[in-house]
Write a protein that binds this DNA or RNA. Structure first.
Lengths: 249, 249
DNA sequence: CGAATAGTGTCTCTCAGACAATATTGC
DNA sequence: GCAATATTGTCTGAGAGACACTATTCG
């Protein structure tokens, strides 16, 4: 159920209804935007220029508008504040965070969204956005984050690590076409350890629907070596059996 | 980030702050309480006696109070409306549902919680609760549910099916001590198919930390047969490798 | 003993991890 | 050729599915 009142006629009820009679909540969205840059899993953080937490780093986000869907609100912040377009990224809900003390001003419930995006040319600060930067998640000092964003970020990173195990979503971190080595570097960055290139190759190419070969022969290699085959992401939505994270047996 | 204003002094900001200046949202919790009864995965539904959706079935739930944590609000509804105590059940957040049209009265964001509980002696309708009933999830007519509860229930059931694969949470559906067959019937009910009792036995007893043998020799059998050994749930939090859902290779 | 359920053992196949060997490119 | 990366192949051990067989209880 959702809201509850004791009235007998629906019309009378709606007419007598006063939204302000309910505990006033604000609802916001926060975006945990992850990418892999220079072999490191990184999150996009903005610097706050208003109270509270002025000068502290925070996840991009903001209020949900009265007629706006939650995910639309998150995507709007994503596009406006980070320049990432929805069509190039994976977006999923991470969860709701509603500790009564999480915002000193009023009661705020924030719905967090998790986004995987390829490494973009530049962070593209949005219109009314102050400084914005990619920060490797290992370099984030938890004490410097605003609100409960340490907790939100932690949940996002843990979700990302789990998702790579049983979905083909690693492909959301790379461009439209990519090599097996590109994909392997995503796994290595997110999980934080080296994977055997040969076993990895066998696993991903042997999983139906994960990778589609692109006819185009091959790109170039930066430090030489045999050119790799190019792939596009397939239509699989889950990995069975899962990719196994090394240190988890 | 969470809420945002342009003010230079924190004191001035807080003093000038007016909660009603923000879009008024109501925040509710909905509880997807699942159990296994008579070999069927069942959900607890209540019948609404007020508009909107009067007479329709709905998930238990209600408003979050101003100083109440989201999970506390869900647990409060669980205990008051269903008689299930928190200590005997597994509780986790399922997600936020905030379609602008989900409640005809006002903008409501609902945070859904998923609860696994053992089959209790009786549904124990709470204090101010109208009729309440366990309904096998396969028998729920989606069109009869209030609000977007069809969607919420669907997400809860799917989450439950997935959780049984890679966590030992099936034990949350049975009592304090249980047999391997009890546990197998949980998997069969949630996944909706028969499992080989012998392979199942080998898997669950061979997974470290899943089951703890109880010294007590054995209970009785309803239709005869060798008495089964009793177990208590172990301290494992994940299953590696996972239990594999049959029709998913 | 027969029926019913509990629990063990065996066989096969898939697959992950370790790692050798081959292929293809730039210099 | 040499260095570097890509890709294939081989071996081994863990574990899942199929299923025969043994154990224990009740009537």
């Amino acid at each position: 159920m959702t809201a509850d009142r004791t009235e007998s006629s629906q019309e009378a009820f709606l007419a007598s209804y006063d939204p302000h009679a309910f505990p006033p909540f604000a609802v916001t969205v926060d975006v945990v935007l992850l990418t892999v840059r220079e072999h490191e899993l990184s999150v996009l953080l903005v610097e706050r220029d208003t109270h509270p937490f002025r000068g502290r780093l925070a996840l991009p986000g903001g209020f949900v508008q009265p007629d706006e869907d939650l995910e639309s609100a998150a995507v709007r912040r994503l596009e406006r504040e980070t320049g990432v377009r929805r069509s190039t990224a994976h977006v999923e809900q991470l969860g709701a965070f509603g500790d009564p003390a999480r915002d000193p001003r009023m009661r705020v419930v924030s719905v967090a969204y998790l986004v995987f995006a390829p490494d973009l040319p530049a962070p593209v600060p949005g219109a009314r956005t102050r400084s914005v930067a990619w920060v490797p998640v290992g370099d984030v000092d938890p004490a410097t984050l605003a609100f409960d964003h340490e907790q939100v970020l932690g949940a996002g990173v843990e979700r990302a690590r789990a998702k790579l195990e049983y979905t083909p979503l690693a492909a959301a971190f790379v461009g439209d076409t990519f090599t097996v080595a590109d994909l392997r570097r995503v796994y290595e960055a997110v999980w934080g350890g080296a994977l055997d290139p040969r076993n990895f190759h066998r696993k991903v190419t042997g999983t139906p629907g994960f990778l589609l070969p692109v006819g185009r022969p091959a790109p170039v290699g930066p430090e030489g070596g045999r050119p790799a085959a190019l792939f596009r992401r397939g239509d699989a939505t889950s990995l069975r059996p899962a990719m196994l994270r090394p240190g988890s047996a």
